[in-house]
């Protein structure tokens, strides 16, 4: 007698639902972040209106919260960081993929990945006690930019490496067979081939630089109301302000800091989404699946 009816279907279904629940948790947490944060940011936005984003005065005693200097500081330090990190990362990625002998490749990649493991607070500590004191940089936009550059370089490098390595060897050999020098080969095949992915890698680095809190909070100088292009001037950034001021903030002040966090959240998410979509598209294309 053959009975082919299922016996363990319940356990199977239960396991599936547990997995679905775990996956749905991502949606739940993100949804909660959005709802809770915007809710708590409402008081200051009701008080300040759009001035929150355009005013340059930030003064808790006067209940004035203009976030523009911090938005500026965030963007400016990130720009400095990118200006340093992008050429360096690209150089490192090209060196590792095109020039480095095989034996050097692995240790080099390990070393660079190690930079990504150093806690940001340790970079901050080094920045505030070594870099800013012994190199005469003080606490400034530039110091923060340098520290952020060091921190995002491994991120950009490792992605750039992945993208560059998708260049077909046949294309590179074709260029070399036509008598191109190594640099001409890179310019003719590697760079055009990985352009999209490289842009995405840079954007991901940017996303990280915008959200980095602790290192910036330690070395940026915590100046109020500075909108300047002078890289040696002390400034402030959104995450640094939140970290430094939260402890002694009253309710409205806290609401203002949360509003800063929401602003930061939106900017970084937009940047990250653009980055991921660029990276994914270029990876797909380079694998031949358009």
């Amino acid at each position: 007698m053959i009975d082919l009816r299922g016996k363990s279907a319940h356990a199977d279904r239960a396991f599936r639902w547990v997995a679905v629940g775990a996956a749905a948790l991502v949606l739940l947490v993100l949804g909660l972040i959005a709802v809770v944060m915007t809710d708590k940011a409402r008081p200051v936005l009701a008080e300040m209106g759009l001035d929150f984003f355009t005013s340059t005065r930030w003064s808790a005693p006067d209940v004035l919260y203009g976030a523009l200097p911090f938005i500026w500081g965030t963007l400016y330090t990130a720009a400095i960081a990118l200006a340093i990190a992008v050429p360096v990362s690209l150089g490192v990625a090209l060196f590792v993929t095109q020039i480095a002998p095989r034996w050097l490749k692995k240790p080099l990649v390990y070393m660079i990945d190690l930079v990504a493991v150093v806690p940001s607070v340790v970079f901050g500590l080094w920045g505030v006690l070594v870099l800013s004191q012994h190199f005469g940089l003080g606490r400034s936009f530039l110091t923060a930019g340098i520290i952020l550059a060091v921190m995002i370089t491994p991120i950009i490098t490792s992605l750039a490496r992945e993208v560059i390595e998708t260049t077909p060897a046949s294309e590179k050999e074709a260029a070399l067979a036509l008598g191109a020098t190594r640099w001409e080969m890179i310019g003719a095949t590697v760079l055009p081939h990985s352009k999209g992915g490289l842009v995405g890698a840079v954007m991901l680095g940017l996303g990280r630089a915008l959200g980095e809190t602790i290192a910036a909070a330690l070395v940026i100088g915590s100046a109020l109301g500075q909108i300047t292009t002078n890289p040696f001037a002390p400034g402030n950034s959104m995450p640094a302000v939140i970290a430094n001021e939260w402890g002694e903030a009253d309710d409205m002040h806290k609401s203002a800091l949360i509003a800063l966090a929401v602003t930061l959240f939106i900017i970084t998410i937009v940047v990250n989404l653009i980055a991921t979509s660029i990276v994914q598209r270029s990876m797909r294309r380079s694998r031949g699946k358009v």
Binding site: I2, L4, R5, G6, K7, S8
Partner: peptide
């Protein structure tokens, strides 16, 4: 049909089928 049982019958479990 596996013997006289419809392999794709509504109550048939794929895991039971594969065990046999």
């Amino acid at each position: 049909h596996f013997h006289d049982v419809d392999l794709y019958g509504p109550e048939v479990s794929a895991t039971e089928v594969r065990r046999r």
